[in-house]
Design a protein around this nucleic acid. Structure first.
Lengths: 156, 156
DNA sequence: GTCTAATTCGTAGCCTGCTACACTGTAGTG
DNA sequence: CACTACAGTGTAGCAGGCTACGAATTAGAC
């Protein structure tokens, strides 16, 4: 008998992540924002109110078309402005608007509450151990990624 | 100073899940399949070769339009057939084709290898504890989901 | 200075999630 | 039998992930 795929770590991770996203989306819908958009605003706030699309891409470990999509939706809704960096005209600088600062505190509280909910019932030690396990998995995937890149180079 | 959002459990989970998906997609691209599609074929195989869209929806905990999209792409590529259940004409029965069986073994091996890679370096006890932590998180999100539904009912 | 390479951003098009709405078929109630 | 309720599917349209390709700007090499 094969092991049940329901038991796979990857499957559980995906199920959890999906559920987090849908809960976050519902929770922030009152602000006209998705969970991802709130996350991006949070990073902007931590970065002193503005950053470049390039840094968003790096921080969230996503492709640049993904960043462009999210930023332009935030822009349409008036939470950020985008302008060309005069010192390096390749950069697009994304800046929080007053509207974003006005809701920032509530959004931050919502995000922290969500994260506390996830590990409800965990002791501090357990939460820390879980974090370490997850970081080890992250490292494993990074190693694998590097291997893949190495293979690509060999092909060339 | 606020806690770094990079440390949030939710953020790490999402980063891992994204990376798993992209690695799986690359790994199965040679078969003309995505990681998700391979997962669906795996469930079909475990179900004896055929099941209903309804059960796919339940097993993968996704919405029915999502299932429809994935199944129709599998159908276009010739890995499954879809037909109406004559006993209950509401049901659409999804069935693996010979083409799917032919690659099934390799796909299964690929999926298991991927899951082993994730927990590389984990002892059996650690892997089991991680699974339990993840299940507890899953339970926490389920509870929260129920709360949300309860609120909706109150509003009615 | 010019030509090439690297960086950053944009667009097109795909896959996988979702909600909302509509349709069909079955079941249950009168 | 008719009428309502429910279950399963389908369609439309959006969000967020990706690759591939292209355009613009800067940096570096000659």
């Amino acid at each position: 008998m094969e092991q049940e795929q329901t038991q796979d770590i990857g499957f559980i991770l995906k199920t959890i992540t999906d559920r987090i996203r849908s809960m976050a989306d519902r929770s922030f819908a009152a602000f006209g924002l998705t969970g991802t958009q709130v996350h991006y605003l949070g990073f902007l706030e931590e970065s002193g109110g503005s950053t470049s699309q390039r840094l968003l891409e790096e921080h969230f470990a996503v492709s640049h078309p993904t960043v462009i999509g999210i930023v332009s939706r935030l822009q349409e809704k008036g939470f950020v402005t985008v302008e060309i960096d005069s010192r390096d005209r390749r950069n697009r600088i994304v800046t929080m608007t007053q509207k974003a600062y006005d809701v920032g505190v509530q959004l931050g509280a919502g995000r922290r509450e969500m994260d506390r909910m996830l590990v409800r019932g965990f002791s501090d030690a357990e939460r820390e151990q879980l974090r370490q396990y997850l970081c080890r998995i992250l490292d494993n995937t990074e190693e694998e990624e590097k291997k893949g890149e190495a293979c690509e180079k060999e092909e060339k």
